[in-house]
Design a protein around this nucleic acid. Structure first.
Lengths: 352, 352
DNA sequence: TTGAAAGCGATACCAA
DNA sequence: TTGGTATCGCTTTCAA
């Protein structure tokens, strides 16, 4: 494996000149640069990242801290962020933590990241004040997706407003008894709480404050949504509509309704949040959030902070949009497939 | 940010001793070790990975080269492999290439990985002989999931046998006119071809060689599966069953059948391969492959090769299993929900 | 049991 | 326009 020294010798110049030539820096004659480039290519020279970062203090790597990588939301965001970061010459170091508190501590303490990355992308994790402080101490800029953290750049949706939007859609269809499938908070994100707050607020706005028995926990998985919906539909006075705080839970709810012998949306309406890639396939009505845009934006925030560390970190809230498909309909009547059901409503095109 | 020198001074020893103490090496008295450990903790010392790898030649990082990260199969494998590798003290460098030929070239040329990782995990990508050679030249061990490459460790399923298993299930249900939804090969993987071969072989075995019009292309996406199925079902003499080479395509096929006004499985049976996490939700019959096990196994192959570079790289084929749910049934009769439909059949439990 | 010192392979400053 | 060289922070060998 050739080093910069090999290139220097073969090109008949010093290593300093090789370095300059390869980095496109000035103070190298064009002739020399070409010669160095040719020799480097010939020797298949690749600079050692370790040596380069030891000398320069830059790693050209961004750490991605996420609870999961194998879920739609996270996969989509990591994918779009990676594309943007790689185009800018950065590598991605992946840290998916699971729900393990110990791993979380390691990641946020900086033990894993210090001296290893130039910046950090945090996904859907809300650090405590302490955690934010220690992770900031790692040194580089931090951007977070799905939460707002003082001092960090952030991109997110308005979770409370999105929940209100979903519930309002159901209310406009005449529903008054609406079940909520939320989640507990193993990762201490504020998101579940905010979506619940939106649910309650919108119900309160129509004078039907939420009943405790209508709020359940589905922990953001398909099977959790199934179980929660099954419980709600088995109530003495079951809800006529279900609002799940994520599409994955809504999909479970869909199946639970079918297994209970109920037609969707004739007997029960179901709405989610996300616009998961399978939502269209299942005809699920949902409040769509732009995941790709959030990933790209977060990546650009990091790049921008890297370029100019002194700027104020931006906090962007991206819009969501109600997408009406076929799992929501008027209460107690056959589904309305004709005219619009709400001014913000977007009626979705069929697959393909 | 403290360095090893700070720790050495604070502990009143040399940096060599600090290094030994921190690495648990011998030739350090227990008392000294404790003192160094205490001082290091106090100073929140974290060794610089760049300096360490420059000096030792080891990066403690594994490169993951995959076409996508935001698809079920890849997310699941990366997740399980990461867990295993992190437990062994390795970081993960993510390289998801998309279908871009240029990115692919960069990754396999070693430009991205040389001197950067100790080993490489390749997912579902089949390198050319040249690519395999240059990636091997990167230096560390390589393990591949979903393909077999001479000289590399590998874990995979038997794609042809899995396809035969799926088709045999349909044949045993009485189907003779069976449509195939495969995919072209943007990433030059042999997998699609092998599944097609299995389809043809099994049909030939019952004396019904495949008709060209029954073989379509769905490019392994939901919408591709939808379009392919729609085409098949619109044939003058449509198939009574559809075999999709992946669950995602099968899900699209399911929807296409419903949109065509056909009942599944009464009018048309659908089977896939994978056992995608949503397959259970959709009651999809499929041939399950163990993704978590494949990820862990591949990770362990790399670790093992790192520990002992001289061993012969293993090539493991993991078993698949037919999982009968409710999208396949006897041809031209109402679905048989009673007794078993095949000796390898596993009847799936309901969700939750 | 401990320390001194020679690299590892680059970057970047200062002279020439 | 070029080269010499100090430096980054650690690992590892060899002496003490």
């Amino acid at each position: 494996m050739s080093t910069i020294k090999d290139v220097a010798e073969a090109a008949g110049v010093s290593i300093a000149t090789v370095s300059r030539a390869l980095h496109g820096l000035p103070r190298v004659s064009e002739a020399t640069r070409q010669r160095v480039l040719a020799v480097a290519a010939e020797l298949r020279y690749v600079a050692s990242p370790s040596a380069a970062s030891l000398a320069s203090g830059q790693t050209h790597a961004i750490g991605v801290v996420a609870p999961y990588i194998n879920r739609w939301y996270f996969g989509a965001i990591v994918h779009s962020a990676e594309e943007r970061l790689r185009a800018a010459g950065y590598d991605l170091l992946l840290y998916s933590l699971g729900t393990d508190a110990h791993e979380r501590r390691r990641a946020f303490s900086g033990t894993l990241l210090r001296k290893r990355v130039d910046g950090v992308l945090v996904l859907a994790l809300h650090p405590t004040t302490d955690e934010a402080a220690t992770l900031s101490a790692v040194g580089g800029p931090v951007a977070v997706v799905g939460a707002a953290v003082p001092g960090w750049a952030s991109v997110r949706i308005d979770d409370e407003a999105s929940a209100r939007c979903a519930v309002r859609h159901l209310v406009e269809l005449g529903h008054r008894r609406i079940g909520f499938i939320g989640g507990d908070d193993p990762l201490r994100t504020p998101m579940p709480g905010e979506r619940r707050r939106g649910y309650r607020a919108e119900l309160a706005a129509v004078g039907r404050p939420a009943a405790t028995e209508l709020e359940t926990v589905g922990d953001f998985t398909v099977s959790g949504g199934y179980a929660a919906a099954a419980r709600l539909l088995a109530l003495p006075e079951p809800p006529t509509a279900l609002f799940a705080a994520s599409d994955e839970m809504a999909m479970g709810a869909l199946q639970a309704a079918r297994h209970a012998g109920l037609r969707v949306p004739e007997d029960v309406s179901v709405i989610g949040i996300d616009d998961h890639e399978m939502a269209q396939l299942l005809d699920l009505t949902t409040v769509a959030q732009p995941v790709v845009a959030q990933g790209v934006l977060a990546a650009e925030m990091i790049l921008s902070a890297l370029a100019d560390p002194d700027q104020e970190p931006p906090a962007v809230v991206v819009p969501t949009e109600l997408v009406v498909r076929r799992t929501t309909g008027p209460v107690g009547r056959p589904p309305d497939t004709g005219s619009a059901t709400g001014e913000r409503a977007v009626r979705d095109r069929p697959v393909v």
